[in-house]
C-alpha cells in the first residue's frame, strides 16, 4: 500500500464522516426509526418528513436493517443525542422491552408503529397498529364471495416475526366467513419479495393447474404473482388478493390484474403517529394508548379516494387538519 492510497482512504473516511453533520437545530427533534429498507417504511418516513417540515419539527432518521440489536442501539444513540421523542417502526413485534426501559429511564417518550405487545403498552407513548389478526380477513371475504368453491393458494412473507403467519390465517378466516367452500392447496412463504413470490406462484401454477385464486400477503409479492400468471398465459383467469395498497398494487388493480388489496398506508399512519407523539410530549395526549392504524379495502371502484402511500405534501397537509385518532382497546388474537 503506497502513501497516496493511504492518504486517499483517510480523506474519504473523513469526508464521509464530516459531510452529513452540518445540519442541526430546530424546535423539537424527533427520531424516526424504520425496521429496514423496505418501501413500506420508506413511504412512511417520507410522509413523516413532509409532516415534520410543515410542523417545524426536526426529524432524524434511523434504520435497523431488520436487526433487533441494531434497533436497540439506535434507541440508545437517539437518547444520547437528546431527542425529544422516538417514533419507531419496530423490527420485531415484542423485543422492545429493553428499548422501552432505556427510553423510560431517560424520560424520552417512544411511540411504536407496528410493535404491539400488551406488556409494553403502559410504558409507551402509544402504539399504532393494524389488527394483524384480521388484516387479511376482508380480502378473504371478498375473494370467498367470488369463489364459492375450488382451489386457492397463499403466499406470505418472511416467517418468524408473527405477522406473516397472522395475515394468512386471517385471510383464511375471511374465506370461511364468506361461506365459501374453497380450499387452500398450497401455503408458501416468499419473504415479502417480488421475485421469490413470482417463483413461488409459478410453482403453484405448475403443481396445481386448477388454482383459481392466489392471496399474496403484500402487494410487492402480488406483483410477482401477477407476472407469473401472465407468463403462464392465465391473466384474468385467476383472482389475486393483496395487502398494503402500495402504489404498484394500486396499479395492478387499475390494470385489472388484481382484484383487491387490503390497504394500510404507512403515509397517513406515520403522519398521525407523529402528531400523537408530539401530543404526548406537550401533554395534550394521554400516553400508553392503543390506536388502530388507518386501513381500507381498495377495489377498482374506490381507487380515487384511497389514501396513497406516496403522499404529496398537499395531501399530508390535509391529513394534519384531520381530527386525531382516538385510543381504542387493543386487538386480541382470535381464540383457536
Amino acid at each position: 500500500m503506497n502513501i497516496t492510497r493511504r492518504a486517499l482512504a483517510v480523506l474519504a473516511l473523513g469526508t464521509a464522516i464530516l459531510a452529513p453533520s452540518l445540519s442541526q437545530a430546530a424546535e423539537k427533534t424527533i427520531a424516526f426509526m424504520r425496521g429496514g429498507p423496505d418501501p413500506y417504511y420508506q413511504y412512511g418516513m417520507n410522509a413523516a418528513q413532509a409532516a415534520a417540515d410543515k410542523l417545524g419539527v426536526n426529524l432524524i432518521t434511523y434504520s435497523a436493517n431488520n436487526d433487533p440489536t441494531q434497533e436497540l442501539a439506535n434507541v440508545q444513540d437517539a437518547i444520547t443525542k437528546g431527542v425529544d421523542g422516538i417514533l419507531i417502526y419496530a423490527v420485531s413485534l415484542s423485543s422492545e422491552k429493553a428499548a422501552i426501559a432505556q427510553a423510560k429511564k431517560a424520560g424520552v417518550p417512544i411511540f411504536f408503529q407496528y410493535g404491539y405487545d400488551p406488556s409494553i403498552l403502559a410504558d409507551s407513548a402509544g402504539i399504532m397498529q393494524i389488527d394483524l389478526y384480521r388484516f387479511g380477513e376482508p380480502v378473504g371475504e371478498a375473494i370467498g364471495k367470488l369463489l364459492p368453491e375450488g382451489e386457492y393458494a397463499t403466499i406470505t412473507g418472511k416467517l418468524g416475526r408473527g405477522d406473516a403467519e397472522a395475515f394468512v390465517q386471517s385471510f383464511k378466516n375471511g374465506i370461511a366467513k364468506s361461506g365459501s367452500k374453497a380450499v387452500s392447496v398450497a401455503d408458501l412463504a416468499a419473504d415479502w419479495d417480488r421475485q421469490k413470490a413470482m417463483d413461488a406462484a409459478s410453482q403453484i401454477l405448475a403443481a396445481h393447474p386448477n388454482v383459481k385464486a392466489i392471496y399474496a400477503a403484500n402487494d410487492d409479492m402480488a406483483v410477482g404473482v401477477a407476472i407469473a400468471i401472465e407468463r403462464a398465459g392465465k391473466t384474468g383467469e385467476i383472482l389475486i388478493g393483496g395487502n398494503n395498497g402500495a402504489p404498484y398494487g394500486v396499479e395492478l388493480i387499475e390494470k385489472g390484474q388484481m382484484t383487491l388489496t387490503g390497504s394500510n398506508p404507512p403515509s397517513i399512519a406515520s403522519v398521525h403517529a407523529l402528531r400523537l407523539l408530539l401530543g404526548v410530549i406537550d401533554g395534550s395526549v394521554k400516553p400508553g394508548q392503543f390506536y388502530y392504524a388507518p386501513s381500507q379495502v381498495i377495489t377498482k371502484d374506490n381507487l380515487a379516494d384511497a389514501a396513497p402511500w406516496d403522499a404529496k405534501p398537499e395531501m399530508v397537509a390535509k391529513w394534519l387538519e384531520e381530527p386525531l385518532p382516538q385510543g381504542a382497546a387493543p386487538p386480541v388474537p382470535p381464540s383457536e
Binding site: A12, L13, I17, S21, M33
Partner: peptide, 26 residues
C-alpha cells in the same frame, strides 16, 4: 457516530461500507 451526528438512515449503509473498506485497505 453516524447516529449521533444525525446521518440519515438512507446514508448509513453506504458510509459504513466505505469505512469498512477503508479500514481493510489500511
Amino acid at each position: 457516530s453516524m447516529n449521533l451526528l444525525g446521518v440519515g438512515a438512507n446514508f448509513q449503509s453506504a458510509v459504513l461500507g466505505l469505512i469498512i473498506t477503508a479500514a481493510v485497505l489500511l
